[in-house]
Amino acid sequence: MNALAARRRHPAAIAVLLMLGLFLTGALYSAFAPEPAEATTQALASQSVEEGKALFRANCASCHGVNAEGRSTGTDDQIAGPALAGVGAAAVDFQVGTGRMPMTQPGTQAARSDDVKFTDEQIAALGAYIASLAPGPEVPSEEAVDPTQGDPATGGELFRVNCAMCHNFAGSGGALTRGKYAPSLKDVSGKHIYEAMATGPQSMPVFNDANMTPESKRDIIAFLTTINEQENPGGMTLGSLGPVSEGLFAWVFGLGILVGCAVWLGAKAA
């Protein structure tokens, strides 16, 4: 204790104390923070359209309407949920399979969530029901999204022309107008990327098979898989956000370390 008392006036003491405090606060917060609410849906194992319809009525109809005809919020021309006839099973698989739907509350944009509320079977049933309303894009086959069969170099060229302006060169995501954004493509499965291109969720345009052939889509998946899996040759990526994060790093860490060295250099030795 004496040693501690002797060091409490050390110049570094405040910094150490501050770090300790921040760390403890963080640790306490993570220990006591409320857990996200558990999904309340019950497992209903069925593939049939009827089961899908039941699931839809129970979970989706409040926004999309009892027969998926879409509903308005009642104010202006805002919609609570769009009509779903013709969006196809691919759209359902994408929206529900990435945790975007069901949305807990209406917002500018449905965010991806790891907390997927339905089982694969239930999603398939929902998709079957929506696909029964009107024909639309199908969930792609395993082969159609197999990255090993695509050409990453061609995919890269296609990605840069068609995708990079919103999703950034490394798929890190980017800003759109008024709070909307193009999400990060890191760790998104090939199937979901294919479905997003085929159905054009939310702000994203549709890339139908005439615009981008299934082979081209597979090339893009191959490209994204390659850059996701490859090493970062230069070290930490700083989020692959471009010069902004690099500049911030130079100011905070580069300058911080060098000024720290300069202070040590200028201080009198004990």
Partner: peptide
């Protein structure tokens, strides 16, 4: 980033700080 081409562009196009 890929090679320069006037048609594509990347989100987050900034100069150095």
């Amino acid at each position: 980033y890929g090679p320069y081409d006037p048609s594509p562009v990347t989100a987050g196009s900034q100069p150095d700080w």
